[in-house]
Amino acid sequence: MTGPVYVHDLDGLAAHARSIRSALPRRVELLYAVKANPDADVLRTLAPAVDGFETASRGELRRLAEVLPGRAPAAYAGPGKTDEDLVAALAAGVHRIHVESPTELRRLGALALAAGTTAQVLLRVNLPVAAPGASLVMGGGPSPFGMDPVDAVRCARRPPEGVEVRGVHAHLASGLDAPLAGEVAAEVVRWSVGQLDAAEVDVGGGMAVDYRHPAARFDWAGYGRALADILGAYPGLRLRIEPGRSVTAYCGSYLTEVIDVKRSHGEWFVVVAGGTHHLRTPAAKGHPQPFTVHRRPGGAGPRTDGGPVTVVGQLCTPKDVLSRSADAGPVGVGDVLVFAMAGAYAWNISHRDFLLHDPPRFRLGDPHRVAAEWAARPVPA
């Protein structure tokens, strides 16, 4: 048996990234949020297509410096930044530091003065902007993310020494379709320019990725038109977005082999090598990860009857569920499953040390070709 493997389709990723860039007005800066997938090959592939990278930890700063030496991060974000984090961001030459609170702003100013520099800052503001239908809301109410509008106004009007407030950052929700994302961006810009006279606004990411409909895609062209309308109303504005999941989700697949199939109280369970300690996305988001089956000819083990199945991994918890499917067809021992849309928030957010199973391997190429080659191998005796 060959252990689970992630396969990244870098050609597909490059084409997708280019299509996003071409759908956006040139005046919109496209940053990639490294947190979605910090794989070195992914970062190298995206480098020619994006205007910069958004980082949110010292580890991401180090990764970017290792993979793309000489390319300073465009942004450094995230709550709970320590003094060490802020010093590292200043030393890395980050173009914009997204500040989460008045206290963080004061600390950054003091550290910048001590380093003999001036920090270029965007204030992260928790604006009361509605986002009905969003899958994850991080603003508009009590939240650990960002500062209240009244605090942001005070900070912008009387910033401490050592910082220059250039504008606003607002990432209020995720799972937004293009019309709603455009409306949210317009509201953020309207407040930022009207209240702070902001010259720069970063409206964040949060573009929807639909795991239940793998062929669906965010309407980048429609979103680009909405951003063009905003820029038309504010000709001097510098506008920035920072998608992550919607850029890389489609380039990665998780391949694994069926170890066992069995019925329990009338329901079929398919047990695979690996599990949510490799691919945490379905457990974290509460959705079935889409998959296809590459049947292994001559498989000697049992096979499901073609009805609904629950695909589970090797962990000692009932939450180790990768997918539930009513239309997978018969699944048998030795078959290879290809879980699509595993290119973002997958291995990098998984609880990888639970039970201390071996990690997955990583390959580049076409995941279905890799799966076909795998399924063609004889079943070990």
Rank of each mutant, 00 (worst) to 15 (best):
A273S: 13
D148W: 07
V258L: 03
T117Y: 11
A208N: 10
G224D: 01
E187Y: 06
D353Q: 15
L196C: 05
K262L: 15
F53Y: 03
G365K: 10
L30Q: 04
V370P: 00
A115N: 08
Y76N: 06
G59C: 02
R324D: 00
D229V: 11
Y234E: 14
G252V: 08
D366S: 08
E100T: 04
Q195M: 15
G365L: 09
D366L: 03
D219M: 02
A72D: 07
L111A: 05
P38K: 03
R225C: 07
A23H: 02
S253A: 15
D148F: 05
T276D: 08
T117A: 14
T292A: 15
A114K: 13
R154C: 08
P179L: 12
S22K: 11
L64R: 04
L105A: 09
G93K: 03
G365I: 07
D327M: 08
D229W: 01
P380R: 10
D353I: 14
H277C: 02
H171G: 10
P38C: 03
L337N: 04
R240M: 06
H277Y: 12
P360I: 09
H213C: 08
R106D: 14
V129E: 02
G59F: 11
D353T: 15
Y32V: 00
E54N: 11
V165T: 01
V209S: 10
G275F: 02
G244P: 06
V209W: 09
R166P: 00
H294S: 12
P4H: 04
P330N: 04
G275Q: 05
G204I: 10
P243E: 01
C155A: 15
S19M: 08
T310R: 15
A372T: 12
A91V: 02
G52P: 08
G286V: 12
F339D: 00
A372G: 09
D327V: 14
E242I: 00
D51V: 03
A185I: 02
R27S: 11
H98I: 15
A249G: 09
D210L: 14
V28R: 07
C155N: 01
N348D: 05
V331R: 03
D41V: 08
G313W: 00
S246V: 13
V201C: 03
P38V: 02
G244T: 05
F354P: 12
L172T: 05
R166S: 04
L356H: 13
R27K: 07
Q289G: 13
S246F: 07
V258C: 03
S101P: 06
G175E: 09
A40K: 11
G194K: 10
A178F: 04
R44H: 06
A89E: 00
L239E: 02
R157K: 11
L108Q: 05
T45Q: 08
Y250V: 13
G109E: 11
A273N: 12
P144A: 07
A77C: 14
D148H: 12
G167A: 10
E29D: 13
R352Y: 14
V247R: 10
S22M: 04
P160R: 13
L279D: 10
T248E: 06
P243H: 04
G365T: 09
W191G: 05
A134H: 05
A208D: 10
L10E: 00
E200W: 11
